[in-house]
Write a protein that binds this DNA or RNA. Structure first.
Lengths: 163, 163
DNA sequence: ACGAACTGCATAGACAAGCTATGTAAATCG
DNA sequence: CGATTTACATAGCTTGTCTATGCAGTTCGT
């Protein structure tokens, strides 16, 4: 049953953008539920933030702890402890920053790349069946939404004061 | 700078659906980051699951604890403790199910409705500025994505065995 | 060039929220 | 009417987060 009518439909009802407040509420609700579901994938007990950090390091190269903390919207000590755990797993390696003796650069290791790939495969397997039922337009909407959600998260001001 | 080209563009590059595995990875990444960001909204110390439960009760009426647990993909004891906390806040009320002496029906209270509205207003305020910069098409994509993410979460099988 | 102020990470301690395993009381079934 | 099943509660543990604070390395002003 094709439930994707052409966007040129005379009726802008459900397919058009809802009012912003309701849209925000629905986004929070659906994103949180989806995140919870995804978090229950195998993953060896690690929560999603570990995979996000590994993905960032894989995509953008080595980074410093404070930088990762800001990117992931967690406090610096939280990231410190996560970085240590990941180092303990052998998934990242920390080297002193040659340009700054205080800092350490965390980079993903081969084992980390492998672990990330396994997690992604498990996640893909988990959702593949449902995803395959969606139309191309729906999958495109999801892809676009992924970009937009990232921008919403990154662009919105963190209400907490610097101190 | 309009970054939404017509879908009929000759180049299906970024606007079309990415391959499913990569799409899944990006969805998890962006949804988790967005959820984290949203979770840091005022909210009086409650994490997003509390608001999801209140939203469900507000939308669908009273429900039993096990039902809420299944909907939110948490274990039954986790929901029991959440329900107790919410009851302590005065946001939900529990009444014995007249049809089943073991069960209790949790329903949202007026105070709960008010608290939910406040949270939603805070969330909307947090993201309103960025959301306003998006095109209508992008907002529509987000609205559609919210539905699809919910379906992805609800339809995918929980890999954990019943016991 | 040297002490003050700043910066980046680490540590300590508290707490929230999840899970598994198990218990208790009500309902249902043979 | 006893055995099983069902629905919620309790116990104990683990993880992940936070704030507050400490320490070593860097930067800057005079």
């Amino acid at each position: 049953m094709p439930e994707n009518t052409a966007p040129e439909s005379a009726e802008p009802a459900a397919a058009s953008a809802p009012e912003p407040d309701r849209l925000t509420a629905e986004l929070i609700r659906s994103a949180a539920l989806f995140t919870r579901t995804a978090g229950r994938i195998a993953g060896g007990g690690y929560s999603s933030i570990a995979w996000r950090v590994l993905a960032d390091l894989d995509r953008d190269g080595a980074a410093r702890a404070a930088e990762l903390a800001a990117l992931q919207r967690v406090a610096q000590p939280s990231m410190t402890s996560l970085v240590h755990r990941l180092e303990g797993e052998g998934w990242i390696a920390r080297n002193p920053d040659p340009a700054d003796g205080r800092a350490a650069l965390a980079g993903i290791t081969l084992a980390g790349i492998r672990a990330l790939a396994e997690f992604r495969a498990a996640a893909a397997a988990r959702f593949a069946a449902t995803l395959a039922e969606f139309s191309d337009a729906d999958r495109a909407a999801l892809g676009r939404a992924a970009e937009l959600l990232t921008r919403l998260a990154r662009d919105s001001e963190d209400p907490r004061p610097p101190r």
